[in-house]
């Protein structure tokens, strides 16, 4: 049985695709921070890639792939943002931001894309895109980092 069904692709309708003006570091301006609801996501088209952008409670932003690998639909931005405490090997407790799929309730680490709860399925991590807020604008990289790899310190 296929564990990662994906809907057949059809040609994207690019009618409304925004002007892309990559910044010098390659990030693309998708919207203002104001446009994002705290602790909620929004879909964005970065290059030709659908990306889910989240604004956390501390007004920082995260971006991951919009495609839910478990259902094959572009719905990740519509999940619930939360937090989860993890204890590192040295005993320190870290609170990490999480996202729960709106479809089958898998949970991911929004920092790394790693699966925290696969809801009984195989692990399918999310691709993470660089994202940051600069002068009130939300910038997202069109290229994902390798899935499951932590952000460089």
């Amino acid at each position: 049985m296929s564990t990662s069904p994906t809907a057949p692709q059809s040609t994207p309708d690019t009618a409304g695709t925004p002007e892309e003006t990559p910044m010098s570091d390659g990030l693309i301006d998708v919207c203002s921070l104001e446009q994002l609801m705290p602790e909620r996501g929004a879909g964005a088209l970065v290059g030709e890639r659908p990306v889910a952008v989240f604004r956390l409670a501390d007004a920082s932003v995260r971006a991951v792939q919009q495609l839910d690998p478990y259902c094959g639909a572009n719905v990740i931005s519509r999940g619930i943002v939360g937090s989860h405490d993890v204890t590192d090997e040295d005993g320190t407790v870290r609170t990490i931001p999480t996202l729960t799929s709106p479809m089958y309730k898998q949970v991911w680490d929004l920092d790394t894309g790693a699966v925290l709860d696969a809801a009984g399925k195989e692990d399918f991590p999310l691709a993470v895109h660089e994202a940051e807020v600069r002068e009130g604008r939300v910038l997202v990289s069109p290229q994902p980092r390798a899935a499951g790899v932590p952000e460089p310190a």
Binding site: Q9, P12, G16, T17, P18, G43, A44
Partner: peptide
Amino acid sequence: INAPEAPDPA
């Protein structure tokens, strides 16, 4: 959010 007119290509 940056392309309000575009439908979901998937």
